[in-house]
Amino acid sequence: MLARLASPRTGGLLALAVVIALLPLALTNKYFYDIAVLVGLNAIVCVGLNLLIGYAGQISLGHAGFFGLGAYGSAILASRYGWPPLAAMLTTTLAVAALAYLVGRPILRLKGHYLAMATLGLGVIIFMVITTEDKYTGGPDGIAVVPLSIGGFVLQGERIWYWVVGALLLVAVWLALNLIESPAGRALRALHSSEVGAEVVGINAAEHKVMAFVISAVFASVAGSLAAHYSGFVTPGKVAFLHSIELVTMVVFGGMASTFGAVVGAAVLTTLPQLLAAFEDYEMMLFGAVMMGTMIFMPRGVVPSLARLFQSRRQQPSSGEGSGT
């Protein structure tokens, strides 16, 4: 029973639920709630992106593009064309999934830096389309978005959004944990380590990479739609290359191939700029320095590095095994 609680799926989910439930005790004003909501939305993106980068080992430097498509899709359909927000969100998500599937097939044949280039290019192209087609998107000025309403109920205010996003984050984490522990998830991890090794036991590597790509795009798109409704406004900044980089950094910072790492990464790197804002002119420089520093000193990311430290502490008295190759 204890072992079960300590397993990442049950124990981790429980711990996350407790954190989400208790966090409001520390959120003493609206501004804090606002940051918490942003953390949650980024965490949803990162949990999906981590399936692609951390588990399947395929980099993407363009996921802000999918986030942006989600945000703008919802904004345009719901605000310009008056669709019910949920229908707009669903349609947008399906369209993004279809797009990710179509571009994913050729793109994911590429490896390493070539894949980085292609995904970066995809993100930049989406960004350019959004800034240029101002008839629909409002161009660089952005576009106002109606609030999210479900039935007759309008979701407004940081507190309500906090609980909605918190619940959705739990769902996202639960889905990701389930997937990782399934045959398909093992296939992803296997092809990350050795593509031929995975193929010769019958795994269609290309198909699985595309699957991870589509899932991660869907997570990003949904988070984008929610973000648009939440803030009531979208601008192209959220679609830019730099936002893609921020997302990848969150995943790597928290720890690749660690779902909870992705959540931690999103939490730290979303709050950090708020803290650094106090340093005004030095904010950008400090942010860059933190990025470099963590990656140099904890190349595996925070959560796996800490877990390792914890483990080696516990094992020290018995033996030094587990160091491996």
Binding site: I53, I59, L61, G112, H113, A116, I245, V248, T249, V252, M256, D281, Y282, E283, M284, M285, L286, F287, G288, A289, V290, M291, M292, G293, M295, I296, P299
Partner: peptide
């Protein structure tokens, strides 16, 4: 010896750092 992604992030961190430095 760090992974490709880690190195990419380090150099991107460096680029943000340098840009920040330039604004100062």
């Amino acid at each position: 010896g760090a992974s490709v992604v880690t190195l990419i992030i380090i150099t991107i961190g460096a680029s943000i750092f340098l840009r920040g430095l330039a604004t100062i």
